[in-house]
Design a protein around this nucleic acid. Structure first.
Length: 447
DNA sequence: TCTGGGGTCCTAGGACCC
DNA sequence: TCTGGGGTCCTAGGACCC
């Protein structure tokens, strides 16, 4: 009798503990494909895929496309005949459209929850802090979030709920693997449910375990998340990246070690890198490409009101004889510290072109280039340098006007001469859909 | 012919200082 | 003959994520 009482008290204790720490992950199902479908209702039940930049490989698949056996990251040119035979609809990625729809989804979620309870984790995912929701209401609250997002935006979502971020990712994954039963929603709110979920989860599907870590774990003959969280802490510390591994263990055991970060933080680095449409040997064209990438990255930089101190440029030579397994060649990189942090496109282009000349080899063929801005500082606190006075108000005003024009018109209506006109290096986008929600002249027409 | 792009965090080890 | 050691900063590189 007493034992039963203690046991129930213990259970109440566990429930109370969970009540205060519940977290959720909500993500959009097959996000890019869903966005394409939203404005083309006739695509319902037809397999759809979205391709990466340059129409390189598959980065989003509808359920029907998954059923056909199409794999994530499959190179487009290799599966093209199959796609045609199966009647799969193919789209180039349209980031302006996806970005806009993502914003709508996130704003909808934020409007339902108390302030500072949402962490936008990626374009199609957000973590939610549900610590203010009572256990009894938990299911209804989560269901309401899901229904509202789907009704207001037309994008289907899945939600996983658990005491930690890592466990909520596991819940979300399980919810999706059995959609009919779960209705894309799974709540792990008791130790038993958590244990059962961990037993169904192979280690390589756990958030935070990639290829390298999975290989180490496999050697121990540990197969599921449940077995993994029984391993000693020291093993995690030694083999899975020190404190990173220890955090992972605690998360699996239900003790929150990764917090919800509500701040929309400013980026610590900004980059723009692209594969060319076709390989280049001409320094002139590579410089044009790099100048364009610098312009893009500088726009991102100014949008978050940062300035850059360290500028890196890389180019990747083309490999002529490839083995069976595709592996890109190592980039040739160089970098410089700027005397004064800046966000001025013309100044950054000038320096970047000097770097390109340093690493470019006459006679070599290149297939990709990129620029990376790191060591960012807030633009408002720019420190002057006695020898190079910082950009005055006029310069910065000019920059913001260039950004505004480009942001609203896309495709760089105003650009710097060094970015070139012919552009033999530009991206391939054969199947680009319209800008439905972001450009007036491409709005959907209802007749 | 054709295999994405943009991020984060952490660690190890060297340089430097006192 | 015997030549320290701890702290801090920086960087490159490795791992992970979507």
């Amino acid at each position: 009798m007493l034992r039963n009482l203690l046991k129930s008290k213990f259970l109440i204790g566990v429930i109370v503990l969970l009540r205060f720490t519940m977290k959720a992950i909500i993500d959009c199902n097959n996000f890019y494909c869903s966005c394409e479908r939203l404005f083309k209702p006739w695509l319902k039940n037809i397999p759809v895929v979205v391709l990466s930049n340059n129409d390189g490989c598959i980065i989003s698949r509808s359920d029907e496309a998954k059923k056909l056996g199409l794999k994530m990251a499959a190179p487009y040119f290799m599966v093209k005949p199959f796609l045609e035979k199966q009647g799969v609809q193919v789209f180039s990625s349209n980031y302006a459209l996806y970005g806009d729809l993502s914003k709508r989804v996130m704003e909808t979620i934020a409007s339902i929850l108390p302030e500072n309870c949402i962490e936008v984790y990626s374009v199609d995912e957000a973590f939610l802090d549900l610590s203010n929701v009572s256990p009894i209401e938990l299911n209804d609250v989560v269901k309401n979030i899901k229904d509202t997002v789907e009704l207001w935006t037309g994008i289907a979502v899945s939600i996983g709920v658990a005491p930690t971020k890592t466990l909520s990712k596991i819940a979300n994954h399980l919810a999706k693997t059995n959609k009919e039963k779960s209705n894309c929603l799974l709540v792990l709110d008791t130790p038993d449910k958590i244990a059962a979920a961990l037993k169904r989860t192979p280690v390589d599907e756990i958030w935070g375990i990639g290829k390298q870590f999975a290989a180490k774990i496999e050697k121990l003959n540990v197969k599921t998340g449940y077995e993994l969280q029984l391993m000693p802490e020291e093993w995690f510390r030694k083999n899975l990246g020190g404190v990173v591994g220890v955090r992972l263990l605690h998360e699996l055991q239900g003790s929150p070690s990764i917090g919800i970060d509500e701040q929309l933080s400013t980026k610590k680095m900004v980059s723009c890198t692209r594969r060319f449409e076709r390989p280049l040997t001409d320094l002139k064209f590579i410089k044009e490409a790099v100048a364009t990438y610098v312009s893009r990255a500088a726009e991102k930089l100014r949008r978050q009101q940062s300035a850059v101190k360290t500028l890196s440029v890389f180019i990747i030579p083309k490999e002529f004889k490839r083995g069976k397994v595709y592996k890109p060649l190592e980039p040739v990189t160089t970098q410089m510290k700027l005397p004064v942090a800046t966000s001025r496109t013309n100044e950054l282009i000038k320096q970047a072109l000097i770097l390109v000349e340093q690493i470019f080899k006459e006679g070599a063929t290149y297939e990709k280039a990129g620029v990376i801005f790191s060591d960012l500082t807030p633009d408002s606190s720019l420190q002057g340098n006695f020898f190079s006075p910082q950009a005055g108000f006029g310069q910065r005003y000019l920059m913001s006007q260039v950004d505004n024009v480009n942001f609203s018109m896309r495709n760089e209506k105003v650009k710097f001469a060094s970015a070139g006109v012919a552009k033999p290096w530009k991206m391939k986008q054969e199947f680009l859909s319209s800008g439905y929600t972001t450009r007036w002249n491409e709005l959907r027409l209802i007749s």
